[in-house]
Design a protein around this nucleic acid. Sequence first.
DNA 1: TCTTGGCACTCGGTAGAATTGACTGCTAAC
DNA 2: GTTAGCAGTCAATTCTACCGAGTGCCAAGA
Lengths: 350, 350
Amino acid sequence: MARRTTKAPTVAPSDLDARKATILQAVVVEHIDTAQPVGSSAVAASADLQVSPATVRSEMVTLEREGYLAQPHTSAGRVPTDKGYRYFVDHLKSGVLGAAQQQQVREFFAGVRGEVEDVLEQTSTLLSELTSYTSVVVGASHAHATILSVQLVNLDPRHHLLVTVFSDGSVVKHSVMPSFEANHVDVTEASRQLHALLIGTSLETRVQVPSRHDHVAALVRESVSVLHAEQPTMDGEQVFIGGSSRVAQVFDGVETVRKVLSILEQELLVVSLVQDILDQGLSVAIGSEHGFEPLLACAVVVAPVMIDGEPAGAVGLLGPTRMKYREAMAAAEVVSQHLTRHFAGEDDRG
Amino acid sequence: MARRTTKAPTVAPSDLDARKATILQAVVVEHIDTAQPVGSSAVAASADLQVSPATVRSEMVTLEREGYLAQPHTSAGRVPTDKGYRYFVDHLKSGVLGAAQQQQVREFFAGVRGEVEDVLEQTSTLLSELTSYTSVVVGASHAHATILSVQLVNLDPRHHLLVTVFSDGSVVKHSVMPSFEANHVDVTEASRQLHALLIGTSLETRVQVPSRHDHVAALVRESVSVLHAEQPTMDGEQVFIGGSSRVAQVFDGVETVRKVLSILEQELLVVSLVQDILDQGLSVAIGSEHGFEPLLACAVVVAPVMIDGEPAGAVGLLGPTRMKYREAMAAAEVVSQHLTRHFAGEDDRG
DNA sequence: TCTTGGCACTCGGTAGAATTGACTGCTAAC
DNA sequence: GTTAGCAGTCAATTCTACCGAGTGCCAAGA
């Protein structure tokens, strides 16, 4: 089957002949395992190719020239570059999760219940326990969901709460603080009009607001504007980060740890990071690939979560570039599928 | 005024004579500044007491015997113990915030708006920027708040959403998933009954639920039970943690960083930590004082936030035991006052 | 009785030298 | 194209000596 490769004299650009590929793979595997630069003899011993270290060396020179490997210093072994990891990941046959972990995931999803937010939050913990990396779970924005209920509640004469329930089960509140005092009757009437106006629409639908100058109309206008204002900030997204303490174990160098934590604090950044990767159609972004300078030392594994065939969030794992890709990808994959099924099941049955 | 102390031959237990106090203070100040053990000559030079290093040494021996100081090893200087820091903090005249920081706080509270949650979240960021420590902001539970509105929304025949609005402006949702299919009419009627039943009550109020066997009554029962179930888990509390990346700067030792982050991940733990400290009537807990083994290396500064004279949350700062107590306490103090005023203002005026 | 200078001692930290050993690149032979 | 052999490189380790900050103790002085 694979014998073919030896017959092809010229290989496609950015593709390696069988032996180079084997060597590269051996370096990556070894380095992921030991975190040390790996030398020619280690490769010659580990890989099943029957060649001497000297041969491996000369191949490694080529691999280094082509950018797959790098040398920390002259008398050290080789370390994979981002490009090397990329090749490794692209040619990775998808692995499966260990039996114990499979079991853990099954039990989790069998037992989990509660609000969507709680499920997502617990899922992020699960993912990070599964892999010992930091996990990211991004919930869908409700931009497309339709409004099931909207209600204006009087807190005090100048402070009202607009409570909106969406078809995806999310509930959001917005303060409405008009410049005039509104009495109970006005608020109730505004609430009724908002109901008539907004039920069944989504945040993307433009609605016709009353232009009258009375208090009720003003309340309605302000409510609608405050509700629709939310969209551009992408604020509807929810992010849950699990196992951020893993950052301290998995990266070395205080400064790296600080940078990564600092990024994780900015949840909007994390969302856009995950979104970017998905938009590029990738499932892994390594080092420089995601363009976040502070995350140069990181690799990010993502898997989308679907609801009704629509992308509706994602799960991700963040680790060092020398992370255990196969395990991480398998975990993300499995959890995202379970999550997809979980939400599908919740919609279909009771 | 303070001359008195020299006249008292025997001092109260755990109280130090003036010179020992000065020396202890000098050691604490110096060590907070340099992170190094401080020696007798440094103390003799810095403090304004006109004695030789030898005298300081003999005093330090006493201070060590009494547990205020410790020696990392024989030929090193002294380092304050938790007890030493405690004495220092107890005898600290409260400082004031720097002008620039005062200004920053004022500007923040002048400009901040939005939902309570957003304000608290941003406050936690502010606090951590102010001090370069990790901050904790705990929002009040709405256990005492009364219910302003309650509504059951039909998501699908077996899944309904109970949306409750409290007088403190918080909104919570709970899934109600009965074992039978409920039609729209039933849900609407149940919603109406819940409204009649719960408006004006707080979560502490026991209410009389209908015992009939029809769908509506079942919905009402389940809704009430799911709503009241929330209380014991103390789930109403909200925690916002700001600047967790500071942990990596401020502590040394990966393991310490990991432990601290790991605690911060467990938000319930953080709430109870802050609560414990407040309950003890403290504003600072140092090292072993809070009884959280993983936080042995930490000191926590807290300040309560009041609404209507009732404790309604707290702000806190978490740093190393050698943290800058005066600055941290001043920051927590000022921010908690502003926060108190902010919420008072929001309730009183528009 | 308290304070102080003097002194011997301890011990962590540092700087330098020597050594090790894990690599490499090169070359010449197969 | 492959390989053994060999000289060379360089980080990491170990060892040594040493420095110096800091101590405890003591005996003399106020």
